[in-house]
């Protein structure tokens, strides 16, 4: 059941990466999913896909993995934060 929900959320996130008109919609979905699911490594993969699709230019001094690194940082931060709260979704 939880695996089915996770797959559905993954599909929604992928569609959001390609189709959402604003980038922060995808980010909010990813934050929500990281909070809701255990070990949501897909946040890092989503960051990599965003960098591969849209990355370029002089943004962040030409560093092309802004979303990937942000995904890693968010994953660690949210996982740590989750453990400090009463609510802790398990699988």
């Amino acid at each position: 059941m939880i695996m089915t929900r996770r797959i559905i959320v993954d599909i929604v996130v992928i569609l959001s990466i390609f189709c959402a008109p604003l980038w922060w919609i995808t980010v909010c979905l990813l934050v929500f999913a990281t909070f809701f699911f255990k070990r949501y490594y897909e946040i890092i993969l989503a960051g990599l896909i965003l960098d591969l699709l849209y990355g370029g230019g002089a943004f962040f001094w030409g560093f092309r993995f802004v979303y990937t690194v942000s995904g890693m940082v968010l994953y660690v931060a949210l996982t740590t934060f989750k453990k400090q709260t009463r609510f802790y979704a398990g699988e």
Binding site: P21, L53, Y54, G55, G57, V66
Partner: peptide, 13 residues
């Protein structure tokens, strides 16, 4: 195909 609002990079596809 994709506009600048879809990422922080301000790129078009």
């Amino acid at each position: 195909l994709a506009g600048p609002g879809q990422s922080l990079y301000d790129t078009l596809i």
